[in-house]
Amino acid sequence: MTEQEKIALIEETLDLDEGTLTADTVLDDVDEYDSMAKLSLIVMMDDEFGVKLTGDVIKGFKTVGDILAVMN
């Protein structure tokens, strides 16, 4: 998966229009990145990448780039 495709996946998970996010976007600036969005992220990461996100890991996400880093 390319970086662009991964960003598109995050946008879809967060219910955002395509092209809203870049790797440098600060998550605190994204209104839609609320607690429900984080749960959707957990589901997406588990289903698409088999990655289990814990609360501590999610707390560590400051930018979209941080999320991309674990999408393997």
Partner: peptide, 11 residues
């Protein structure tokens, strides 16, 4: 409630 811990636990 710690939403994330509860979500992970429940699922």
């Amino acid at each position: 409630m710690d939403d994330i811990e509860v979500f992970n636990f429940a699922t």
